[in-house]
Nucleic acid binder design. Sequence first.
DNA 1: GAGTGGTCTAGACCACCAG
DNA 2: TGGTGGTCTAGACCACTCC
Lengths: 251, 251
Amino acid sequence: MDTNWSVRLDTETRTLGARTAARLRELIRDGVLAPGTRLPAEPELARRLGVSRPTLRAAVTELIGDLLLVRRRGVGTFVSAAPRPAHGLERLTGTGRGITLVGRRPGTTGLRVRHVVADPALAAHLHVDPGSPVVHLTRTRTADGVPVAHCAEWIPAGLLPEPTALDAFGAEDSLHDRLAALGLPLRQAVARLVPVVPDADLRDRLDLASDAPLLLLEQRHFAVAPGDRVALFSRHWYDTDRIDLELVRRG
Amino acid sequence: MDTNWSVRLDTETRTLGARTAARLRELIRDGVLAPGTRLPAEPELARRLGVSRPTLRAAVTELIGDLLLVRRRGVGTFVSAAPRPAHGLERLTGTGRGITLVGRRPGTTGLRVRHVVADPALAAHLHVDPGSPVVHLTRTRTADGVPVAHCAEWIPAGLLPEPTALDAFGAEDSLHDRLAALGLPLRQAVARLVPVVPDADLRDRLDLASDAPLLLLEQRHFAVAPGDRVALFSRHWYDTDRIDLELVRRG
DNA sequence: GAGTGGTCTAGACCACCAG
DNA sequence: TGGTGGTCTAGACCACTCC
């Protein structure tokens, strides 16, 4: 096999482990590593990719988490033959990117940006004092033009460089990317899952014909710094008849 | 500070990284490392715990995933002051253990074990041929005596050492533990989340007064070996009014 | 500049599986 | 018995934060 496997030619900015994982994804996607085949032994594979074995193992571990590879001690590492989710909720991404990952085209309707003050309930969710200024976004997300989720977001204005930093937020923008550009990259979120019956407003926004229940994701998002503060509180109502919500659980 | 931090005295069977993480959990739980305090620098902390820095980092990374610690580059690692979930769905555990983790007492009612054959739909979920023998368990789980979820599980009989291996399964048993003892340790699962309106049977089993929607977790579980085969398919209907379902999402 | 976390390496030894 | 993945180490260098 004379395929050039090396990952060191890559000049992207990500870590070597992430680039190695990306290279393995390509080799699998392109069929160089077909489903069911065994990978070369780890020291050999590391040599071919031009990385150390721990770095290779980090990359392989990542792909195992995505169900692309299977390790069998004493036997080898294999390309998985089982179907796998294109996107799982355990990975934190923006709603738009999640829609892209499942192969659909994201869109936004009804975007509205407001400045509000935190009532006691919202203040508790955001870990701020009641009465604090909060930026509030609402919008309906579509996939291939079909509404799939209605999203409401609340961001403490005190965490933004300026309270007006999000006033120019557009329908095509990514809130995750925008917050990262403002120095608030979201790194993790704690979501509460609640099945709910849609009210008239939600039925209207999502253009629902039936009163089938929706799945509400109520999330507290944390940024890298200062780290302990809630950078974003959100409520997303998903119509699971129109978009599958999947989740990879690891033991 | 003359606390004995060393982790090498521990004789348990887990890996050194896992024992180190457990030691850090103890130090946090016991208040030696109070919320908001900065941990010693990584080389220093590794020395105190008697492990190498990569091993320490693996442990710290695990606790960060559990929201117990926060890393700030160039500044330090801090004990989180924010509340965190006791149990997240992103971690694969048995339902009973999940109930224990949130501080409640698990129980089981209405356990039934049956032998069935796979119809085409079930065969597709289990990746077996239609007509294959399947062991089917149903039971209702309680927390502190209150029904919180109804569970249905299907296991390909061909993966068991004997088709009758689960006939003696008892109300107090853990299916995860039992399957591990049978050589089928479950390592990961892909769950689909669907809000559903309970039918009469579910309302009866869960003793529901209202017709509030339930959250259905439809899961394909994978074992370590052979690795690609579905070892267990399950449907769990949760009453989220009686038990919170939370999920930690990482970027 | 000093100290912190972030990344990567080379090598070692062990546990498991297959022949 | 030989090859595989599983784990751990010591050390190096870099990037970032704060003084």
